[in-house]
């Protein structure tokens, strides 16, 4: 067994290298785009400082987690249109339980919320596996269920997240240029890197890129799909808690924006909607780009409503460029 693995390693490495090059090509382009937008922003607003940077990291934090959640599911060949609803559920559960308590209590609540919403995500996956109904239909329907539950927990937007808990994301402990909201993003690699290096992570990529081949290689399809949805649910829960920290408010209707923007972020971040291709680095940068657009519009004194329009046009352009690129490679 050991010998076979060792013998195959050089070839696998070469395959991996080629793939990595293709994958990082897109990721580098996304970071270059982010850098360009940042440069333009600083050119527009010469007094851009740590405060503005802090604001950006706060705005991007929930979206980055939403994008991570969607990435997990899409890598496994699915799609989760209930990401935003799951976030809203985590957000209102947190508010309901934390109201009027101290930091330690809030941290325990956060942990419980993470478990609960991870289970909700796993339930999405389980329903899809059991019923064999396409992912998009089930998650559209469950988005109603989670959003309805969120409304049951909390009928209207209510402030009251403990200040100490909010300060975990707001403010900057180490340096004004390294705000806490940026550091909290480390949750993503902390979960993602061990997962990707594990058998289970490889299985998720496998079922995303070719379900038949994965099945014939002995991958447990049902478990892997449920795992992808469960980890997606975990990231959605992080997103909901991030929303609690950055806004201090429980909002039952926060969902729709994050569902749509998460799909935008993963598309921009180079995750193939066909599954099995992409990583976490791109979507996170894309979340920053998408959060920067409204800010830039405000700096320019333009109606921020143009933001949605620009976001839509940007996605179409990026995907079309990607499509033309693929055509050229084939030719």
């Amino acid at each position: 067994m050991e010998a076979t693995v060792a013998a195959e390693r050089p070839r696998l490495d070469r395959v991996r290298f080629g793939r990595a090059l293709r994958r990082f090509g897109w990721t580098i382009a996304v970071y270059a785009l982010f850098a360009t937008v940042m440069v333009v922003t600083i050119a527009i607003k010469p007094d851009y400082g740590s405060f503005e940077w802090n604001t950006l990291t706060l705005a991007a934090l929930p979206l980055a987690f939403a994008a991570a959640a969607q990435t997990m599911v899409v890598l496994g060949g699915g799609i989760d249109l209930s990401v935003g609803a799951l976030m809203a559920l985590a957000n209102v559960l947190a508010l309901r339980a934390m109201l009027g308590h101290d930091l330690n209590y809030a941290l325990v609540v956060a942990l419980i919320v993470l478990v609960e919403v991870t289970l909700a995500g796993a339930l999405n996956g389980a329903i899809i596996v059991l019923t064999r109904v396409p992912d998009i239909v089930i998650t559209l329907a469950t988005s109603f269920i989670w959003a309805g539950l969120a409304l049951l927990v909390l009928a209207k937007p209510t402030p009251g997240i403990p200040l100490d808990f909010q300060n975990l994301a707001q403010g900057s402990t180490f340096s004004p240029w390294v705000p806490n909201a940026l550091l909290l993003l480390l949750v993503i690699p902390a979960v993602w890197i061990p997962l990707r290096r594990s058998r289970a992570g490889l299985a998720i990529y496998a079922i995303g890129s070719d379900r038949n081949a994965a099945f014939r290689s002995g991958v447990n399809l049902a478990l892997s799909r449920i795992l992808a949805y469960a980890v997606g649910g975990f990231f959605a829960a992080c997103g909901g808690l991030a929303l609690s920290m950055t806004t201090g408010v429980g909002t039952p209707l926060a969902g729709t924006y994050y569902t749509l923007s998460a799909v935008s972020a993963i598309v921009l971040g180079g995750v193939s909607l066909a599954g099995g291709r992409g990583g976490m680095l791109g979507p996170v940068a894309a979340a920053y780009i998408l959060s920067l657009i409204p800010a830039v519009l405000i700096y320019l004194g333009i109606d921020p409503n143009y933001g949605q329009m620009i976001q839509g046009v940007l996605i179409v352009l990026v995907v079309m460029i990607g499509g033309v690129g693929a055509l050229l490679r084939r030719a």
Binding site: Y306, Q308, M309, Q311, G312, I315, V316, V319
Partner: peptide
Amino acid sequence: VFRVQPLIMTLAMGLVVTGSLNV
């Protein structure tokens, strides 16, 4: 023509339409 996945294309156009309508 550009072979964009329908989900992405219509999602993006939905954003464009709603954004334009708000403006």
